[in-house]
Design a protein around this nucleic acid. Structure first.
Lengths: 333, 333
DNA sequence: ATATTTTAGTTAAGCGCTTTCTTTAAAAGA
DNA sequence: TCTTTTAAAGAAAGCGCTTAACTAAAATAT
């Protein structure tokens, strides 16, 4: 059987309180005893049960992370980054992929509550206000990742999506483009904001997107294909397309090729996220990079902070996106 | 404060044992009491602490999953599938991405031991035999996912990689190819097995791969690029390339284009995994599909079984891969 | 009507820790 | 030398639950 604190205490000839103190480095312990106890712990391969510790200490050192889809490279990278930063501070992560299903989001939140996670990072759309409110009521530290809404009182960490959309538009304008189309992720606030920013850049030049040139799509292969087709069959074909996600952009690239449309010869494309898709796409995809790792670092940092001090009011942290130039945009000048 | 079992018991006028029994559906409880207690639980929004339950009941209903890299689409899909099947049975998953670092693998395993996970699914290379042995000593149910080694006494669930490689080779042969090259993942047993199977198919026709036509690469963009270049600059250029991973294949596609080599016109390519990369690649990548979801189902199923009965000896389950035809292979007949 | 079995629920111990409060013993001060 | 201070360790309660053992009441059998 796994050795417990009692085994260590007995063998070291001290009380369990003493062992606990050397494990947690609290209280006053003489070097002599500390060393002895440490030695015995090593001998016995003692590893304290964090379950028991959680029951008394009130902390599980676990945080729950909800993402819509871990198979989406952006979230995969987010997950990895979060996990990394969490591990550094001794926290483990329970990863929950909701598959965009509201019900599953529910289930997972309940699971996390039962498990008494110390905090939750929500990167899903949290569409169910009641559930959401319940979380706040339970006073469980909450952080919204990559989504935002004025109603949120919790911490929020996002990329500055509006600015990202703006950057994309500005870049295309600078390259001489004047005729645009957009494929935007309908089901995420971030998608809407990116579109918003894009429009604002066009507004600088008094260009207005006409209705047909804005197509909605989720960040999934099948839907993106449909959206791409719609754009490719537009009577008034754009010279540049802004896709609110690299995945959507990558799919567009393929569809274009099927339609014998050359990229960037006939149509320029710009994406968003800077995931592996942008790197692997052909041609390499010019895109707006999210500072994934930094986002994750801030997120963990903020969350841990509000675990310490639960009543901190929610800050909004918006990190700057950056344009990464590759080969999918043609210079018309 | 979160209500406890005491609050429910008191309000319902029963003992905590009774409440526990209705929560877990154990023992004999009259419908009348059951209903009353259930009602009160709802009223109080009582949610039992799985921490406390774990301390007594000896089960945390959590399983640890170690993958080398969650940003690799294959593992992302594996993670999602595992999570899904785990959730169905009330288990949560702690996801650990080791980033191919042995040390991190260590750290995570220790973390998981502290957290008293009920079982561990290992999809990393587990190169450190000592650590591995320690796990077995601790009698923690262990399942090797997508990796294998004769020394493993635990359960193993993998795709039949040798057969997969064989299928790839057979397919290319049938399409009239006789001159091959391979890019194989050096750091995974599965990569070696796939190569092995591929070679066996060639052996049927008494074809032998010469040394230069086998290039090793990890499943990462940078390295795959290098490997692709090596193959593309071979004096004796192959008509078909087998890549032991879709990611590697996708990168090869790009590099080929940069070298003005047409796919499948000049070189045919076949991948492995059938991840999103195969779908998005241009041309669509013909590949050997792993039955990811089924693998995950078996894995969870087996693991739960050996959680129930810890001394079950380790079975080896090898699921059949399947060829998915797309457009990256040319028929030379 | 009494003895026996079944049913419904209770008591209490214990899981492996943390933490507050005490106690003990040694060092310091008077 | 005796008291006071301080450093080091221990005792014990309690975290929220499960479960084995037990009891009282109800149902059934004799």
């Amino acid at each position: 059987m796994k050795p417990t604190i009692y085994d260590v205490a007995e063998k070291a000839g001290v009380s369990i309180a003493t062992v606990s103190k050397v494990v947690n480095n609290t209280g006053r312990i003489s070097d002599k005893t500390r060393n002895r106890v440490t030695e015995i712990m090593r001998e016995l391969e003692y590893s304290p049960s964090s379950v028991a510790a959680a029951l008394t200490g009130k902390k599980t050192f676990t945080i729950g992370v909800l993402v819509p889809d871990i198979a989406n490279p952006f979230f995969a990278e987010v997950a990895r980054a979060l996990e990394n930063h969490a591990r550094e501070t001794g926290y483990a992560i329970i990863l929950c992929s909701t598959d965009y299903q509201r019900e599953r989001e529910q289930d997972y939140l309940e699971l996390l509550l039962k498990k008494q996670v110390d905090g939750i990072i929500l990167a899903t759309e949290a569409r169910d206000w009641k559930v959401f409110k319940k979380l706040l009521d339970k006073k469980i530290p909450l952080l919204m990742f990559s989504i935002d809404h004025p109603s949120f009182s919790s911490h929020v960490v996002t990329t500055d999506d509006v600015r990202g959309g703006y950057l994309a538009g500005r870049y295309l304008l600078d390259k001489g483009h004047r005729n645009f189309a957009v494929i935007a992720e309908v089901n995420r606030a971030s998608g809407r904001l990116r579109l918003e920013g894009f429009k604002q850049s066009l507004a600088d030049e008094e260009i207005v997107l006409d209705k047909d040139s804005v197509v909605y799509s989720k960040s999934r292969v099948e839907e993106a294909k449909e959206a791409a087709k719609q754009i490719l069959t537009l009577k008034n074909r754009p010279t540049a397309v802004f896709a609110s996600t690299d995945l959507i952009a990558a799919v567009f690239l393929n569809e274009a090729r099927k339609h014998n449309v050359s990229i960037p010869g006939d149509i320029s494309v710009i994406g968003f996220d800077n995931t592996i898709h942008a790197e692997i796409a052909d041609p390499g995809l010019t895109t707006i990079a999210q500072p994934t790792d930094e986002l994750a670092r801030y997120a963990i940092h903020q969350l841990l902070k509000s675990i310490e001090k639960p009543n901190l009011s929610g800050h909004r942290i918006m990190l700057a996106p950056e344009l990464v130039e590759r080969y999918s945009v043609r210079d018309l000048n």
